[in-house]
Simulated assay, not measured.
Amino acid sequence: MYLDITENLFNLKLFLKHRDYAPEFKDIKESGRVGLPCIVINDGEQIVFDYTTLDIEDIKR
């Protein structure tokens, strides 16, 4: 699901609620960052903070 957090306050709140409880964001929050941009794959199976580390071919499998 694509979510544009700049579209409205509701979308931003949805993202922040997910971020606040997802363990993958722990290091991001502790370093004072928001955690954007990120790509969430398969309902949270993988969360990517740096798109250059994303292996598109691996995702297709």
Rank of each mutant, 00 (worst) to 15 (best):
G44P: 11
N11C: 07
I59C: 05
D58A: 14
I59P: 02
L9P: 03
N11Y: 09
R61V: 05
V40M: 09
D55T: 08
F10R: 13
L14N: 12
V48G: 00
D4W: 06
S31A: 08
G32V: 02
D27L: 10
F15I: 12
L16P: 02
Q46I: 05
M1R: 13
E57Y: 02
L12F: 14
E30H: 04
I5M: 04
R19F: 07
I41H: 10
L9M: 10
K29I: 10
Y21V: 15
Y21R: 11
N42H: 13
G35Y: 06
D58Y: 02
I28W: 04
E24T: 06
G44R: 07
K29L: 06
Y2L: 09
L54D: 08
T53V: 02
F10W: 07
P37Y: 05
K26N: 15
E57P: 00
E57A: 15
Y51A: 06
E7G: 02
I41K: 11
Q46F: 09
K13W: 12
V40C: 03
L16C: 05
G32P: 04
P37A: 11
Y2I: 11
L9Q: 10
L16D: 08
M1A: 13
R33Y: 06
C38V: 03
L36I: 15
D58T: 05
I47E: 05
V48W: 01
D55S: 13
A22P: 00
L36Y: 02
P23W: 03
G44S: 08
Y2M: 03
T52G: 00
E45K: 15
H18S: 03
I5Q: 01
I47F: 05
K60T: 01
D43C: 09
E45A: 14
K13M: 11
F49K: 03
Q46S: 10
V48H: 00
A22H: 12
I39F: 13
K29G: 01
R33G: 03
T53Y: 00
D4K: 04
E24P: 03
E45P: 01
K60R: 10
E30P: 01
I59A: 00
E7R: 04
R19K: 10
I47G: 04
A22R: 09
G35N: 08
Y2T: 11
I41W: 14
V34Y: 11
S31K: 12
G35F: 04
E57Q: 13
E24Y: 06
P23S: 14
K26M: 14
H18K: 13
D50W: 01
E7D: 06
G32D: 05
F25A: 12
R33T: 00
F15G: 08
A22E: 12
I59K: 00
N42K: 15
R33K: 14
I41S: 07
F15R: 09
P37K: 08
L12T: 12
M1G: 12
F25S: 09
E7V: 01
N42T: 01
F49P: 02
E24A: 15
V34M: 15
L12C: 06
R19M: 09
L12M: 14
P23K: 14
R33F: 07
D50R: 01
D4M: 03
L36E: 04
I39L: 14
L36M: 11
P23M: 03
F15H: 04
L36K: 08
S31D: 08
C38P: 05
G32C: 03
H18M: 13
F25E: 10
I28Y: 04
D55G: 00
